[in-house]
């Protein structure tokens, strides 16, 4: 089972993930329409790029925007989850070994202590996001089973990975389950809301260009995100 999940299945998941997200990004750009969107995307590359970079950059900064500062609980939950969700898959020692074995690509590995911390942080972040969905009426009204499904798909690799890491239970079983859920996540990403892995950047770049090119970026200091 391990060989299958670490070999062909892993390669397949990576392909679906990267090709799928790339296609989503290409579709997104191809579907932009200067007149319908009312943004002259191609005409002002300078303000466009500046606007896009500011729009993405500030939102990647914890408490970097008015929105983040207005909602500290959400901000903490968001960054706890996303720090782990980005760094753990790439730089956890076990992951780098599997990646090297399967593809030959060697990424540096992070110390185990940091990996532990980030993994727990991600789980806590997910729990906080779930709690928000239950507790806050303004989030509850928007929440559907699909939103919990996405949280579950995101949580599963972390939880199974932690169980395996602490050798709680049958290690081989939990490791396989962990790999399975990790690959499920990779495969689902392009077809679900997880596509925000790439579309977050596209969408933020778009609104940044909108403000940078059309809605005043050229007039002043730029939007105070």
């Amino acid at each position: 089972m391990y060989e299958f999940l670490a070999g062909p299945m892993f390669i397949l998941s990576l392909c679906v993930f990267f090709v799928g997200l790339l296609v989503r990004a290409i579709w997104y750009v191809r579907g932009l329409h200067w007149q319908m969107d009312r943004v002259a995307y191609g005409m002002y590359p300078g303000p466009g790029i500046k606007g896009a970079a500011r729009s993405i950059g500030y939102w990647l900064l914890p408490f970097g925007t008015y929105g983040w500062r207005a909602q500290p609980f959400m901000t903490v939950a968001f960054f706890l989850l996303h720090l782990g969700a980005v760094l753990i898959p790439l730089f956890l020692l076990g992951h780098t070994l599997v990646l090297k074995a399967a593809t030959g690509i060697a990424l540096p590995a992070m110390p185990a202590r940091i990996a532990d911390f980030l993994s727990w942080a991600a789980v806590i972040g997910i729990a906080m996001l779930a709690l928000r969905r239950i507790a806050l009426p303004e989030v509850r009204i928007l929440t559907s089973a699909y939103d919990y499904f996405i949280l579950l798909v995101t949580a599963a690799p972390f939880i199974t990975g932690l169980v395996a890491r602490y050798h709680a239970g049958d290690y081989a079983f939990w490791l396989s389950l962990h790999m399975f859920f990790g690959e499920v996540l990779l495969i689902l990403a392009p077809f679900t809301k997880l596509s925000h892995i790439i579309l977050f950047f596209m969408s933020r770049a778009q609104i940044g260009m909108d403000y940078g090119i059309k809605r005043g970026g050229i007039n002043g200091k730029g939007m105070a995100w």
Partner: peptide, 13 residues
């Protein structure tokens, strides 16, 4: 177009 479709689709609720 894709801008609005994406907005409707990726809204994280």
């Amino acid at each position: 177009k894709s801008r609005l479709r994406t907005w409707l689709g990726i809204c994280a609720h």
